[in-house]
Simulated scan of single mutants.
Amino acid sequence: MERIPALISLLVMVMVIEMARTSAEQENKSSSAGLFWSTAKEEGDLVHKAGPADDSTAAVDNADGGFSSLDGMLQWAIGHSDSAKLKETAQDVQRLSPSELNQRQLEIKELVEKLKMPSDAQLMQIALDDLNNSSLSIEDRHHALQELLILVEPIDNANDFCKLGGLAVIIRELNHPDPDIRKISAWILGKASQNNPYVQKQVLELGALAKLMEMVNSSSADEATKAFYAVSALIRNNVAGQQLFYVEAGDKMLQDILSNPSVDARLRRKAVFLVGDLAECQLENIDKAEMPFFSNHLFLKSVVDLTASNDLDLQDKALVAIKNLLQLRTTEATVFKDFCRLDDALERMKKQLEDLMLEEYHREYVIDVEGLRKEVELIFQAKLGKVITVPT
């Protein structure tokens, strides 16, 4: 931060030099080569006229980041300088020899080049170039991936990342022997794909879904969780992705996660959340055929059984999934009752929540979960009532 005032001073100095030279030329190279600033008003006028536009952002090159030229930086410096010091600097300039003035200009031009910031697209390209370097160290590879993890989050950056060929590079890193590199690579794909149909399509076409689903079975909980995050991001609100997910036995993967209590809790939460999300997407696309696994008895039971968990967050997400599944056309109320024993599960959960309400800790959250439980119970009874009242 200490170099900023000095930078401004140097920049203004060059600005004054250029204005002095222009003035001298207009006066047919008269002996008065200096610049006389008579009033503050005139100083303001000169400052105003120094730039080609009133917009203070005119000096900034939005495409490349930083200042687009020395002139642009001069305009910025003028606008951020004290008028009194500006006048004092102008007087100091008059005492410099021509060689000293030229030296100051060279110093500023070098500083401009050092301070010019690259754009996000340029930063992504630099990181990709590093990843394409086979001799890059593991530490530097981690650093490049961490940079991309931040850069790809904005949707425009994610789209640019595709155009730079970045997806293919990251997908290649999914096969790296280092588990952290695989984990961060999956995380990048998830962030870039989140709510972005364009990127989702590109990643799916590159065949990354099968590899990511394979990584969900990793012995590393972190790698498995990040891979599942990427899978979810790829197929969320994406019918084509969901169909491919089913072809790759995604229903079995979900059932295995949900029915295995030894699986990392984070992964189980993400899995049941995805089930609820997929069911909701189906409800929003009623013209699309429902996925067969939505009506699979064992699959539905694995979701209902989560309500017996001691993890309140997991129970909450399970209730959301059950609520959406109950509203699908192909799910049968009698299966929820006779095979999944949903009525017993809801009653057991009611008693558990009543006990938790006696505690102050998370009491409001418990009340919200109980409200959701009641809502599920009403939907279940309504669906069951329709079956009972149907004439034979």
Score class of each variant (00 low, 15 high):
Leu106His: 11
Leu106Pro: 01
Gly79Leu: 12
Ile108Tyr: 13
Gln75Pro: 00
Leu86Arg: 08
Asp92Asn: 13
Pro98Glu: 06
Glu88Phe: 11
Gly79Tyr: 14
Ala77Gln: 08
Ser83Phe: 03
Asn102Pro: 00
Lys109Arg: 10
Asn102Tyr: 15
Asn102Ala: 09
Asp82Asn: 07
Asp92Thr: 12
Gln91Cys: 01
Gln91Gly: 00
Gln103Thr: 04
Ser97Asn: 09
Ala90Tyr: 01
Val112Arg: 02
Ser97Tyr: 14
Arg104Ser: 08
Gln105Thr: 05
Leu111Val: 02
Leu86Tyr: 12
Gln94Asp: 02
Gln94Glu: 03
Ile78Gly: 05
Asp92Cys: 11
Val93Tyr: 15
Leu101Ala: 04
Gln105His: 05
Leu96Gln: 02
Ile108Ser: 05
Leu86His: 06
Ala90Gln: 07
Ala84Ser: 10
Val93Trp: 15
Leu106Ala: 06
Glu88Thr: 09
Ile108His: 03
Arg95Ser: 03
Asp92Gln: 14
Gln105Phe: 12
Ala84Gly: 09
Leu106Thr: 06
Gln91Tyr: 07
Glu110Met: 10
Thr89Cys: 02
Leu96Lys: 03
Ser83Trp: 02
Asp92Trp: 15
Glu110Thr: 12
Glu110Val: 10
Gln103Cys: 00
Leu111Arg: 06
Ala77Lys: 03
Ala84Lys: 14
Asp92Leu: 12
Ile108Cys: 09
Ile108Lys: 08
Ala84Met: 11
Pro98His: 07
Ser83Ala: 14
Glu100Leu: 11
Glu88Tyr: 10
Ser97Gln: 13
